[in-house]
């Protein structure tokens, strides 16, 4: 089992409040991703759950009982750090076995478990090496191996892939998703990579200045953001925001349209503009267009787009894909 419930969790460092009041319920076996801008408190919240930081207030309920005052060892959670944090003086074997040794497990049992974890993670040939003799990807696997052997109630990952190159990151992402399916364990995963958040998560938790801004499945957040903040944060490239007269037509302070929800035409449309820049990605082209209504807007065109910078162009937002926001940045539901 691995349910984790945060109840009015607060964290202050001295006089500075980092987490004002966090509430969250994570179900057993769920893959939850924390996202948010740098410094918003993702790592802090994860470390509070781990027990590496003390809460300033509130409860952290793991499997039904409050663990907020328990030391990390007693919470039954595993953590994978961004810097891997392997024990440099121990072999891969001993790195993986350390937690089991601390738990006082008999030797033959430890050996069997280490062998099994090593096999799962393709580390069998490296068991006798020291961490410094491994590549970045292999080190990350050892860190994951160290986390899985103890069969924790939940896994905590703090940006585990951000030190890897792009290709390896994709591969490890799939491996972690595979692992989640195989183990069926609860996982909390901190990242600021859009793709990781959208593809891996059962639910995404968007944090803003230590507050839980919105919680939902990736597509819920994509389709129905509660606020300007979430709308701007989820999705890549960013959602376009237009305020002023045009927004007024939609009875809103600000309207938002995603780059993929705007149709282009060289003859006619709702908004007139001029192409300023074109980014060709092969499968898509991102056009940055200067418009009279809302400054520079980004539009995604499928495939290769034949018009280049300087060309006149017309934009038409998809009507039922327009997001409306009031003057407080909250979404106005039942969009036109």
């Amino acid at each position: 089992m691995g349910t984790i419930v945060l109840k009015d969790v607060q964290k202050r460092f001295g006089d500075v409040t980092i987490i004002p009041n966090a509430n969250l319920a994570i179900k057993n076996g769920e893959f939850v991703v924390f996202v948010g801008p740098s410094g918003c408190g993702k790592s802090t919240l994860l470390r509070l759950i781990a027990g590496l930081e003390d809460v300033s207030g509130g409860e952290i309920i793991i499997d039904g009982s409050d663990a907020a005052q328990l030391p990390p060892a007693k919470r039954g959670l595993s953590m994978v750090f961004q810097s891997y944090a392997l024990y440099p003086h121990m072999s891969v074997r001993n790195n993986i076995a350390f937690g089991l040794k601390m738990a006082g497990m008999p030797k033959p049992e430890i050996e069997a478990k280490v062998a099994k974890a090593a096999q799962t993670l393709n580390l069998t040939d490296y068991l006798d090496r020291k961490p410094r003799q491994l590549s970045g990807g292999q080190r990350q696997r050892v860190a994951i191996g160290r986390a899985i052997v103890r069969q924790p109630k939940a896994f905590l990952f703090d940006e585990p892939l951000s030190n890897l190159d792009a290709a390896l990151r994709v591969q490890m992402r799939l491996e972690i998703m595979q692992l989640h399916q195989t183990l069926g364990a609860t996982m909390i995963y901190v990242t600021h990579d859009q793709v990781e958040a959208m593809t891996m998560a059962d639910r995404i938790v968007v944090l803003n200045k230590g507050n839980v801004e919105q919680v939902g499945s990736p597509l819920e957040l994509y389709n129905n953001p509660d606020s300007l903040f979430v709308a701007g944060f989820i999705g890549s490239p960013k959602m376009n925001f237009v305020s002023g007269e045009v927004a007024g037509q939609y009875q809103a302070q600000t309207i938002g349209v995603r780059p993929e929800h705007i149709a282009l035409s060289s003859q006619s449309g709702a908004w007139e503009g001029t192409i300023a820049l074109a980014e060709h990605l092969g499968a898509d082209t991102f056009l940055h267009i200067d418009t009279k209504v809302g400054g520079r807007l980004t539009v995604r065109a499928a495939g290769e787009y034949d018009q280049g910078p300087g060309a006149k162009i017309w934009l038409t937002p998809e009507k039922n894909r327009i997001h409306r926001f009031d003057q407080n940045g909250r979404a106005i539901k039942n969009a036109a």
Partner: peptide, 25 residues
């Protein structure tokens, strides 16, 4: 410090963290 924190997550007591992780390093 993460290495010591990793030891804490792995269930090491303060004493074991000092003896098995900090001192050897």
């Amino acid at each position: 410090p993460e290495i010591l924190e990793a030891a804490r997550m792995d269930g090491a007591s303060l004493w074991k963290e000092l003896v098995y992780v900090l001192a050897p390093m």
